[in-house]
Computed example of a mutant assay.
Amino acid sequence: MPQTVLITGASGGIGRATAREFARRGARVGLVARGRAGLEAAAEEVRGLGGEPLVAPADVADHTALHEAAAAVERHLGPIDVWVNVAFTSVFAPFTEITPEEFRRVTEVAYLGFANGTREALSRMLPRDRGTIVQVGSALGDRSIPLQSAYCGAKHAVNGFTSSVRTELMHQGSNVHITVVQMPAVNTPQFSWVRSRLPRHPQPVPPIYQPEVAARAVLHAAAHPRRKQYYVGASTVGTIVANKFAAGLLDRYLARTGYDSQQTGAPAHPHPDNLWKPADADRDHGAHGVFDDSAHAHSAQAWLPRHPALTWSGAAGLTAAAATAAAWLHRTRRAG
């Protein structure tokens, strides 16, 4: 029996790539986002790959609109088995250059949008006592960086919120599961349509991965949701481990490097952004951003959980890497 999946932020980036992965498995896919052109193009891809799409435009910050989108998905495609929260927006700027209205908007989409989606999913899954919610998180939900205070705050909030909901489900003995997939830097269109006050074109902090890497991890997490979190990319694991052992050192390192590493050498040019209006309402931008030449199409670290026979050796390798990172950070701190 084909699964019914609802994906927010499905018109571009990780959401778009995730829709394609589920479609390859014959899923019925509810596509939720604001941009009509992006949604229609995503629906064509889902259909072409063997899935059954339904376009359901909605702003995830509007819980009423999200409720109506979910109702349409279940009315046309059947009960939702998997709900994937992806949608977000952001502002690239120092905190003092972000207006209160902009900060609130990012929070409403990137954090409250996840809460709205989770609430809507639970209202449908709990009575059936089955279903899976996948939160697309970020390494920045554990380790904040400069110039992304609103986004980092939202991703930290998603982690805390999700842990609370998970323990409530456990208390109830529910067969509904919730998990988080923590992502690295990903080559999505957001870096061309995000609101930015930086002097140069924004970029993800290398190493950069293609959205298909993230999408495969989401698919695996949806099929194996009992694990609390999944980590995509060695950079994600390294960042989280380093932050546990030497957060102060990372503060100083990011203070020195975090501005330049988030900008290309090209000057910024005025462009429409997607903070208040969708950037793909009239033109489809696809899943990929402009960093194809430097983005990795595979992640060995993300590959390991999908191959259980190698999980123990992979875990041992990560443990050794963590120990090495900790020792290096300790020596660096003492030397400083």
Rank of each mutant, 00 (worst) to 15 (best):
T89A: 12
A115L: 14
E97R: 15
V109G: 06
F114D: 05
F95V: 14
T107H: 09
E108S: 12
G113S: 07
Y111H: 12
E108H: 10
R119N: 13
P94L: 11
V82K: 00
V91C: 07
S90I: 01
V82T: 07
R105Q: 14
V109H: 11
E108V: 03
A87C: 12
Y111I: 02
R104L: 04
F92E: 03
W83V: 00
A115Y: 08
T107G: 02
V106I: 14
T89R: 14
I98A: 01
L77E: 03
A110C: 04
G113P: 11
E74A: 10
Y111P: 00
G117A: 07
D81W: 03
R119F: 12
Y111C: 00
T96E: 14
V106G: 09
L112P: 01
A115I: 11
V84Y: 01
W83R: 00
G117C: 05
E101W: 13
L77C: 08
P94E: 06
V106C: 09
G78N: 11
T118I: 15
R104I: 00
E108W: 05
V109M: 12
V109E: 08
A93Q: 03
G78I: 11
Y111S: 03
P79H: 09
L112K: 08
R119H: 14
D81H: 11
R104N: 05
E97P: 05
R119T: 10
P94F: 06
V73T: 13
T118P: 07
L77I: 09
R75W: 10
V73M: 09
G113I: 01
N116M: 08
N85E: 13
A93T: 11
A110L: 03
E108Y: 08
P100A: 06
N85M: 10
A87F: 11
F88C: 05
L77M: 14
V84A: 13
V91I: 06
T96L: 03
F114C: 07
N116R: 13
F92I: 06
V82F: 03
T99I: 00
N116I: 00
F88R: 03
I98H: 02
R119A: 14
E102W: 01
W83L: 08
L112N: 12
V82A: 02
N85S: 15
G78K: 09
A115W: 08
G113Q: 04
E74K: 12
S90V: 09
E108M: 13
E74R: 07
H76N: 11
R105H: 05
T96H: 11
T118A: 13
F114H: 12
R104D: 11
V73K: 02
N116K: 06
L77H: 10
T96W: 06
I80M: 04
W83T: 00
A93M: 08
G113M: 01
R119L: 15
E102F: 03
F103Q: 02
D81M: 10
G113D: 07
I98D: 01
D81C: 12
R105I: 09
A110V: 02
V86Q: 13
E74I: 12
F103M: 09
S90T: 14
T118N: 02
R105W: 07
P100K: 10
L77K: 08
P94D: 10
A110M: 07
